[in-house]
Amino acid sequence: MGLPSMSGSSLFKPCIAIEIAPNPQFLSLLRRFAGCLARDLGLTEEEALQLELCLDEACANSIEGTLMRTRQFDSPCIRIELSVQTDALEITIRDSGNDFTSAFQKATALHEFTDRTRKRGYGLQIIKTFMDRVQYSYDPVKGNELRFIKFLSNHPRPSP
């Protein structure tokens, strides 16, 4: 069963929240979920794949950052919210890992990137390349919040 139609209606805008422990074993489940949701929302196969990849990269970063800080595999401390808007899918990931403001600012979209000899650290670049809007904030008390938006392909995109 697909999600209810969004066209012309603001009655039902589902928000789905998932909390996971910082364990990379969860990544495949999250990818499958993101892929199913994307296809239900009418994103193209390529866009669905991009969304799977971006959620994977963002959560992998959160898991790594949180583990470095807490060393606890079991406590569900990474929260993923997927909010379906009329014209977009918005994903927010919150965690208590280390501040990555500097890495976020340095990350350029992949098409502006020439050094492919690097072995790690592509995650934020991938997200900036494939998502339509990406925001990041860090609060010493609340932790990290990474938010990205994918506009639905059957809706016109607002100008930035």
């Binding site: 495949s28 992998a60 072995k119 790690r120 592509y122 995650g123």
Partner: peptide
């Protein structure tokens, strides 16, 4: 059936 940047990083590291 899937590869993320972690997998790509392995291949790029070995390639050189």
């Amino acid at each position: 059936n899937y590869i993320s940047s972690a997998g790509l990083g392995v291949l790029m590291g070995m390639l050189h």
